[in-house]
Amino acid sequence: MYEPIRTPSSRKGSVHTRAGITSDFPHRTREEELDIQLAGHLAALLAVTDELREPAPSADLDNAAVRLAQQVSRLRGGRTPVRSVTPGGDRPHRTALHERAHSLAGRALVVAASRADTTAAILAAQRMDAHAAALAEAGLTATAG
Rank of each mutant, 00 (worst) to 15 (best):
T17F: 15
R76G: 02
L75M: 08
A43T: 04
L38D: 00
L68F: 05
S73F: 10
V111N: 03
E32S: 11
S14R: 14
R28L: 14
E99L: 15
P81G: 02
S58E: 03
L109M: 09
A112W: 02
S9D: 13
P4A: 13
Q70Y: 07
V85K: 08
L68C: 04
R67E: 09
E54Q: 14
T29W: 06
R74D: 08
L34R: 10
T49R: 01
I21G: 01
L109G: 04
L75S: 07
D35S: 12
L38K: 07
P57F: 06
E32V: 14
V66C: 03
D117M: 07
G89L: 14
E3D: 08
A43C: 07
F25T: 03
I5F: 11
A19D: 08
A65Q: 10
R115L: 12
E99R: 15
P26I: 10
T86R: 14
A43M: 06
A56P: 04
R6S: 12
V82G: 06
T22S: 11
V72N: 07
I5C: 07
P8V: 10
V85H: 10
E33G: 10
A43F: 11
I36W: 00
L68D: 04
E99Q: 15
R6D: 09
P8G: 02
A59L: 10
E54G: 01
A108N: 04
E51D: 13
H41S: 05
D35N: 14
R76P: 00
R76D: 02
V110P: 00
R100F: 02
R30F: 10
T49H: 06
L34F: 11
L97G: 02
H41N: 07
S58N: 02
T49C: 05
G20I: 10
H27L: 15
A59C: 03
E54T: 01
S73Q: 15
D24W: 13
T7F: 15
A101R: 02
N63Q: 13
T95L: 11
A59I: 05
R30S: 14
D50Q: 15
R115Y: 01
T86D: 01
P26W: 00
D50N: 14
L75T: 06
D62V: 08
L42I: 01
D60H: 02
N63R: 15
I21R: 15
L52G: 04
L46Q: 03
T17R: 15
D62Q: 09
T86P: 00
D50S: 11
H41D: 05
H102P: 03
I5S: 11
H98I: 03
V85P: 04
G88C: 10
A19Q: 11
L52K: 00
E51H: 09
P8I: 11
D90L: 14
T86Q: 09
R6Q: 12
P87D: 07
V48Y: 05
S23Q: 09
A43H: 13
R91G: 00
R6M: 12
E33Y: 09
P8Q: 13
T95Y: 01
H93L: 00
A64W: 05
A105E: 03
S23T: 09
F25Q: 09
G40P: 04
I36C: 00
P81T: 07
R91A: 06
T80W: 08
R83S: 13
G20L: 09
L68W: 04
L42F: 08
A64Y: 07
F25K: 08
R100W: 02
I21C: 05
A44Q: 08
